[in-house]
């Protein structure tokens, strides 16, 4: 029987900001690259994001935030993922995240931070190359 594995991605916007231009463009680019993209809209709490990732059994979570609240919200999300055992999910982030915050975010387990001006094909490629292998 044919194995029909597809990469499933959750694009999530934590925080209260509404700048979804980037998130939507990424969602569209990942879809056009053949992935299944779940987009849950604005104003998602860390609990909602993690529960959604769990129920949807995604391979990848893309977090987009431009409000500046990443220093509060990203640690909460990463901690909840750990609690729920979702440690094999690739987490990446984008938005307005100052350069100096990047090491701290990566230490939390966020694999890559894509700043403004990143080419979408680079992001797609990164996902393909880093998506965890499942048996």
């Amino acid at each position: 029987m044919q194995n029909q594995r597809k990469i499933r991605v959750l694009i999530a916007k934590p925080g209260l900001d509404s700048h979804d231009r980037g998130a939507k463009i990424i969602a569209r680019a990942l879809r056009d690259a053949g992935m299944e993209v779940i987009y849950t809209g604005l104003k998602q709490t860390p609990e909602q994001i993690v529960e959604t990732a769990l129920q949807e059994d995604v391979d990848v979570i893309g977090l987009s935030i431009l409000s500046g609240a990443h220093k509060t919200l990203f640690p909460m999300i990463m901690e909840l993922l750990k609690q729920k055992g979702l440690t094999d999910v690739l987490v990446v982030a984008g938005g307005i995240i100052p350069e100096e915050d990047v090491p701290e975010m990566k230490k939390l387990g966020i694999k890559e931070i894509f700043g403004p001006g990143t080419r979408t094909d680079k992001i797609v490629q990164f996902v393909f190359e880093n998506v965890p292998k499942r048996t």
């Binding site: 879809r31 690259a33 993209v37 987009y39």
Partner: peptide
Amino acid sequence: TSPFTGGAFLGDRIRMQELST
């Protein structure tokens, strides 16, 4: 699913997202 790219955009749950927890 898009017949051209094989990708899909899954957006139904947004309406039920408050219940996700």
